[in-house]
Amino acid sequence: MNIKLGLLAAALLFSLPVSAANWGASIDDRADALSQKLHNSHDYHAYLAINLANKAAEEKDQHDTEVAKRFMQMAEQEAAKVGSAK
């Protein structure tokens, strides 16, 4: 039984998207971290990531938390592509 529970926990853990590593951090913290990391990059994906992170922060300020999370997730997915613009 313990093995099965362990498997369940492992399956759930591995199913998490990369952005879930930021669970617990606020939208503002995540947006700030992303902006600081990318502010010197002139890559298309970096600009888009910062743009989406700013929109996430705006939505969060308007108390639309679900939308803010969605934009933040998109921002982090875009940030992961930095350097890959073709």
């Binding site: 298309y44 600009y47 888009l48 910062i50 743009n51 989406l52 934009f71 998109m74 613009a85």
Partner: peptide, 16 residues
Amino acid sequence: EQCAPALQAEAVGQLY
């Protein structure tokens, strides 16, 4: 994405 990355990102961000 290369010659006008900031503008193109702005366009896509506004589209979303």
